[in-house]
Structures are given as C-alpha cells and as structure tokens.
C-alpha cells in the first residue's frame, strides 16, 4: 500500500469512528440544550443498543426489526431514566445531576454484565460484509452506513427542530423556558422526549458500531467520553460544531494509531480536552451568542 492509499485508509477509518462519536455527541448536545443536564451516561445508550440488538437477532427476530426494536427499547430506557431519576431531582445543582448520570452509567454497566456477561459479541453488518477499494484503500460497507447515518441523523434532527411545530415548541423551551410555560408548553414533557430521543441516537450509534468493533458491556465508557469531548469542542450547545469535533477526534485518533502507535490512540481525546480546558473554557468552536439548537 503506498503512502497515499494508507493516508486515505486512515482518514476513512477516522471518519467512520468519528461518525459514531458524532451520533452520541448529538445526544449530548440535544439533552444539554433542552434540559441543561450533562448526561455522562450517554455512551451507555450505545452499549445497551448494541447488546439488545445482539440478543434480539439471536432470538430469531428479523434483522432490521431487531435493530429498530433495540433503538426503541433504549429510547424507552432513556425516557424511564428521565422520569425516575432526573425529573424527581428537579432544581438540583449541576453537580447533583452529573452524579445522577454517572450513577446511572455504573448501574447500566452492572446490569449489562449481569445480563450479557463480560465477553464481546458480534453483530452482522447492516447490508453486506463486502468491502471495496477506493484509490488503493479498502472500505467496508458498514463504514459507509456509519458516515451516512451520522449525516442523516443530524439532518433529521435539524429538520425536526426547525420545520415542525413540535420542534419549535422545543426551541421555545430552550430560548425562554418561562415564556414557554406561559403558553402551555410543559418543560418536563420536553425533557422526557429529549432524553428518549438522545437515548435513541446513542442506540443508533451502538448498533452501527457493533458490526465494526463488536459489542460488550464496557464499550459505552470510551465511546461516551470521546463523544463528550467532541460535544465540549462544540461548546456543548452547537450541534454542527459537535459533529465537526467528533470527526476531528476520530480522524486524529486514526492518524495517531496509524503513524505512531495504537497505545496513544485513547490519549488523543484527553489531549483535546486538556487543550480546550486550558485555552477555551467555553469550547473550541463555540460562538459566544450562537443558536443553541
């Protein structure tokens, strides 16, 4: 493989994993914008989605239905999490909410060990396990799915927010929660929908990445942390910037892995986080007064 093909290969690998981070980061931004909560359990939704999909496929349910079912189940878990753990803490401090979400992520990992054990599982790819070559680089079909889904999810979210009445009510809630209540919008209901949608996005990331790197109880931790850094790069409130941050992390990781050593890979996002915290406490791409959705 010549140098150019190798670079292309690495870039595409980075884009693929960046897409996964992007889907999870979208959930971070969505939840943060609507509820003001940093949900550090966001990565666990990916883990749950992947493992539930594995079990549903194993139980003989048609593949497509299993994927949709896994995403729906995780949305339900996200909604329950909001109702049973976040809503009762209404008015609590940011730190309390952080602890609740960290507690929830521990609980979900524990539950996953209990149900699925610690061994990794495989999930078949969405369409085919064929790969094809592009200018000397080998690209898997599942990677194309990952990239396409991250773009699609963003487009769908953006469309839902800006073009539907329910989306505008959600925006109203973000722009001015008091005025939103005065016209009859219930922020608690919006928080419920938001958590369910964010969980669904996480699950989508999980079922998309499982055919590439497998599914196991611990996968959510790293995915969640990296998506979190991506969201921080985007200033936490800006979805396009968070996606750019996710691609940036994914591609940098792939380049580090390819040209230096895979043992440095996981340090990349922490390095980014350190840089941001040192130089830009509000996030790399954050616009000072930018739109929040």
């Amino acid at each position: 493989m010549d140098a150019f093909s190798q670079l292309l290969q690495l870039l595409f690998a980075g884009l693929t994993v960046g897409s996964i981070y992007a889907l999870i980061a979208l959930g971070f931004v969505l939840t943060y914008n609507v509820t003001g909560i940093l949900n550090l359990a966001q990565g666990e939704f990916a883990m749950l989605g992947a493992l539930i999909a594995v079990s549903l496929v194993a139980s003989g349910i048609p593949y497509g239905l299993a994927l949709v079912g896994a995403i729906a189940a995780v949305s339900l878990i996200g909604g329950l999490f909001e109702r049973l753990a976040l809503a009762p803490a209404r008015g609590a401090s940011t730190a309390t909410y952080l602890l609740i979400t960290i507690g929830f992520s521990f609980a979900m990992r524990g539950l996953a060990i209990f149900v699925w054990g610690t061994q990794p599982y495989a999930l078949p790819p969405f369409t085919s396990d064929r790969s094809f070559s592009l200018l000397g680089a080998v690209i898997q079909t599942q990677s194309l799915w990952a990239v396409a889904l991250s773009v699609l999810a963003f487009g769908a979210l953006e469309g839902a927010f800006n073009r539907t009445y329910a989306g505008k009510a959600m925006q109203a809630c973000v722009i001015n929660p008091v005025a939103a209540r005065l016209v009859g919008i219930d922020p608690k209901r919006m928080a419920l929908y938001t958590l369910a949608a964010s969980a669904g996005l996480g699950a989508l990331a999980g079922v998309t990445v499982a055919p590439i790197s497998g599914a196991s109880y611990g996968m959510g931790l790293m995915l969640g942390l990296k998506a979190f850094v991506a969201a921080v790069i985007g200033g936490l409130t800006n979805a396009p910037a968070a996606i750019a941050g996710a691609y940036l992390i994914g591609i940098t990781e792939a380049l580090v892995e390819g040209y230096l050593s895979s043992s440095y890979k996981d340090a990349v996002s922490f390095l980014f986080l350190l840089i941001i915290l040192l130089y830009r406490p509000t996030g790399l791409f954050a616009r000072a007064e930018g739109k929040r959705v």
């Binding site: 505008k168 925006q171 722009i175 001015n176 005025a179 939103a180 009859g184 919008i185």
Partner: peptide
C-alpha cells in the same frame, strides 16, 4: 415581553396557541 427571539413572528404567535 419575553418573546422567543430566534423564532419568527409567525412562530411566536402560533406558539401562543400551543394548547
């Protein structure tokens, strides 16, 4: 006033009729 700044005048009015 507390209007929804980023939303259009039309959207502001229709959100008034939310329920």
């Amino acid at each position: 006033r507390q209007i929804f700044d980023d939303l259009s005048v039309r959207d502001n009015l229709f959100l008034g009729a939310y329920h």
